[in-house]
């Protein structure tokens, strides 16, 4: 389990502070609907700068939630992002926690 998945970051079952930051939540949501997405696709859909996206991706990668692969096409290197298995389950748990909060079912 990564640091983000430990109780240190949890305040309700599945609630994950690493994922909950608005842009990181949107990155995870976007990647959860895809096998993989190109960095520029994510950047465009989020409407953020490359440096902001890089920063959030780094946090998610450090937590073990996102992985990136590089591919060269048309002499340009492209970065593809995808959720790891751990990231996918952490994201699902976080969404469930949000739904519990909306439904008024949180224990905290």
């Amino acid at each position: 389990m990564t640091a983000a998945g430990k109780t240190v970051g949890k305040t309700v079952d599945g609630f994950n502070p690493v994922i909950h930051a608005p842009n990181r939540l949107r990155i995870c949501a976007l990647l959860s609907a895809a096998d993989q997405a190109e960095f520029s696709f994510v950047q465009e859909r989020l409407g953020v700068s490359a440096s902001v996206l890089s920063k959030h991706v780094s946090v998610l990668m450090d937590a073990g939630y996102v992985k990136q692969t590089r591919a060269v096409r048309d002499t340009r290197q492209r970065v593809w992002l995808s959720l790891t298995k751990e990231g996918r389950s952490a994201y699902k748990a976080h969404v469930a926690a949000l739904q519990a909060i909306v439904g008024g079912n949180q224990d905290a």
Partner: peptide
Amino acid sequence: ALAAVEQARTAVE
């Protein structure tokens, strides 16, 4: 946050 999640997923779909 859940609305933002739906929006992001729709962007992929």
